[in-house]
Computed example of a mutant assay.
Amino acid sequence: MTLSSNEISATAATSSITLDGEVNHRSAYPYHYKYIRDVILATHKVPWLEQLVGLRKEGWRNEGLDEVYMERQAVIQEPDMETQRFWFEQMRRVMSELDHFGVGLVPPAGEFKFLDIGCAPGGFSSYILTKNRQAHGTGVTLDIFQGGYPVLLEKRCQRRYTLVLRDLLQLDFTYDGAPPPVPLVPIPPSLRDHQYVLVLVDGHHLRHYRPESPSSAPDAPSPPYMAFRDAFFLSQLLLALDALRPGGTLVLKLTHAEYTHTAQILFFLDAISDRLALCKPRVLHRSRATFYAVARGVHVDRAPPGWVSGLRALWREARFGGEVEGMGRALRAGELDFIVSPGEIVEVWLDRLVKLARQVWGIQVRGLQKLFERTGVQPGTAANEQSEHEDQ
């Protein structure tokens, strides 16, 4: 269904009134992020997404889930070794799901070179190196002294693996642009030059991240989370585009497929790849908004002029554009429109987005239902009826 510009504006205006109660400490997204979602709800019959919005609202209103969330954050910030080993094994299972979803993402034999960005605790790399004994990998992660996690890769895999301890926020992605306002480190040759058949992007900006600075005390407080969240994402994406061999596969972790900025990144991946699919592993991600975009046959040179350079310019703004010198900021409405505007997505790509994301929403609905059962939250009967309708 195609909307006129007036109808699009009316949909956004109506939705902004009905969604006022949604933003809290777990959903600090400004309205423009949700614009695409609300157009989908207004123009398409997608019971999974309708139900997902309802379940999220119920979750946000439930104090019991607040406690679950806070407990999870406490564990993430200070995990013991048992927890870290559990994460390692779970990440191996996630990579197994991605491999089977991608129908042989990792070949069982033969030369195979991969890059794992945000590799700790090492489960993705362990799965690949175990399945293919001729594979060689490089992993990038934050040093534990800056808030990162240890890499638990088995000794039998380490001889075919190079671990790079690097703060991605300290790498220089400006290239031929104006020099950054603070000194940054050049990207190491081992992390660029389009040499990897598979690039995995699974890092996430840590709330307890500590910038690498000689003047920073070991017990100094972490900077505000939003100051570097989007800069970190763009750093990972640009590094992946520089490292991936033409025709290779890019696996990129994203969140909220129905949100505007995510839809714009998916549009970008769809344009530069032969095949794009979205995978939401049941392990770890079932009840969360996270999922993986699996882009195969990626050719960065397919991107129209200005797309990659625009990402570099936006990285600079997200990295240094905060109100405090040297600090970053979150992306704003319209800053990815050089790729595709929300209006253009609605006009020409909305059906494609819904087709890609439908199963992602469905898996999260089932995951939230199970989470609610464990914590005593009872979803409404209407939501359950929608779930049954989608299964038919």
Rank of each mutant, 00 (worst) to 15 (best):
D351Q: 09
D193E: 14
L239Q: 14
Q364R: 13
E82A: 14
H208D: 11
D242P: 01
E258T: 07
S235I: 10
Y29W: 05
A382P: 02
F173S: 10
G148T: 11
V308L: 12
P108A: 11
Q77W: 00
R374C: 04
A243V: 10
Q195G: 14
Y196C: 04
E82R: 12
T11R: 05
V294K: 00
L356Q: 02
R296K: 11
W361M: 01
P379G: 10
A263T: 12
T141C: 12
Y175K: 10
Q392F: 06
F173R: 08
R229G: 02
R85Y: 11
H208W: 11
H25W: 11
L237N: 02
V151I: 12
H285W: 00
L3R: 07
D301R: 13
M95V: 04
A271H: 15
I8E: 02
K34A: 11
R85K: 14
T290D: 13
P281V: 03
V140N: 03
D167S: 08
Q146H: 14
T260R: 04
R374D: 13
L350F: 01
P342H: 07
K34Y: 08
I187H: 09
R133E: 09
R26A: 12
T162W: 00
T11W: 01
R133W: 00
I272L: 06
A42M: 04
G248I: 06
K57M: 11
A357L: 01
A277F: 05
